[in-house]
């Protein structure tokens, strides 16, 4: 659906050349929810703004729905943009227009009569569950409601693609979830390809099928969300995982010699990480029973990503050292990454 081919974008600011996006190529498939995650300044926003040419790439080409966007005349571009909806971090609703008029904005001048527009807007209001707010002005709405209006407005022209530029970054976690749920619904119900730009790991986990991790204007890694986050290859990806997982806290606990990690003779602390979609197997029970060791779960962090559990556990095991060895080997054979933590 979207083909980004060797796109670079350089800015000239105060005599300095700034390379925001460096030779990025991506293929976003029809009807998928594709996430681009990166810390601020990674170039992700610039990249997504290249897709509808709010920023014109310095090099490379962008093909949306079979059409090379970069080669269009201004008039053709205006038309092509109706096929690419966009929502923003700060919603960008028109203050002087009420909810109805905001959603109707992109419908004007397309040869539709008043009734057709009214019908369309009402259907969109229903979709975003704001039927009772048609006459309200943006200043009377909450952040979540504003973003719902923005989504309805972006969908008014029946686009095939929806770009979300940090669309949930100004919202609280609960509202973020409700907006993400709506995006998911839009994706499933209308079959719209969605590109989500975010710096929040939770957003990617919640809705994306595939993800690209961006750093310094380049794609650090790319793939299925579960794949990328279960076995991250790049430091930047690991950094994002640490923002949501509590597993790394064990290192702090050990460093401060917390009572939680005081071991008796024969005990060992293990950090387990699931690398495959197999956490449903009763691994802890199995090693406890078959290898005759006791397992004490200190804490864990397991989340469901792309319908599979991802995360791990920190456990204290006690038993004969040979049995512990065997248990570790067994776990590793089941594709669980095992780290034996040293306690000094």
């Amino acid at each position: 659906m979207i083909e980004i081919k060797n796109v670079s974008k350089t800015f000239l600011s105060e005599g300095k050349i700034l390379e925001a996006v460096k030779d990025v190529s991506l293929h976003i498939k029809p009807k998928e929810v594709f996430g681009i995650i990166g810390f601020s300044g990674a170039g992700k926003s610039t990249l997504v703004r290249c897709i509808n040419l709010l920023e014109r790439p310095s090099h490379g080409s962008i093909i949306v729905d079979g059409q090379d966007i970069t080669s269009l005349s201004p008039k053709e571009l205006h038309k092509a943009r109706k096929n690419i909806g966009m929502i923003f971090q700060h919603f960008n609703l028109m203050k002087s227009r009420n909810v109805f008029q905001n959603i109707a904005y992109p419908l004007k001048g397309r040869g539709q009569n008043k009734n057709e527009i009214k019908e369309k807007v009402n259907a969109l209001l229903k979709l975003v569950e704001l039927e009772d707010k048609a006459k309200a002005y943006p200043s009377q709405l909450s952040g979540g409601q504003k973003q719902r209006v923005a989504i309805a407005r972006a969908l008014a022209t029946d686009p095939k693609v929806l770009l979300c530029d940090e669309a949930t970054s100004a919202l609280d976690p609960q509202t973020t979830l409700s907006i993400l749920k709506l995006l998911k619904q839009v994706n499933k119900q209308l079959g719209i390809t969605i590109v989500i730009i975010t710096h929040e790991m939770a957003v990617i986990k919640e809705v994306c099928n595939r993800v690209a991790v961006m750093e310094n204007g380049k794609i650090a890694e790319e793939g299925e969300v579960f794949q990328v986050f279960s076995s991250p290859r790049q430091e930047v990806t690991k950094g994002f995982i640490d923002t949501t997982s509590v597993l790394h806290k064990i290192y702090d606990l050990i460093e401060t010699s917390s009572p939680v990690v005081q071991l008796k003779p024969g005990e060992k602390i293990l950090k387990l990480k699931y690398l495959e979609k197999k956490a449903s197997e009763a691994l802890i029970s199995i090693i406890s029973r078959d290898f005759n060791i006791d397992c004490n779960i200190i804490f864990g962090s397991i989340e469901i990503i792309g319908d599979a559990p991802l995360g791990g556990l920190v456990i204290i095991v006690s038993g004969k050292s040979g049995d512990i060895e065997d248990a570790i080997n067994y776990l590793e054979s089941k594709n669980v990454e095992v780290e034996v933590l040293d306690i000094d």
Binding site: N52, L54, P74, K75, L77, H78, K79, A80, R81, K82, I84, G85, M86, F88, H90, N92, L93, M94, Y105, P106, K108, G109, A150, R153, A154, T157, L163
Partner: peptide
């Protein structure tokens, strides 16, 4: 707010349309 101009552009509004609308 420059964001409004951006949003209008993203919705395919022409430059003249941006001035008036």
């Amino acid at each position: 707010d420059s964001g409004l101009i951006e949003a209008a552009q993203a919705m395919g509004t022409s430059s003249m349309g941006i001035i008036f609308r």
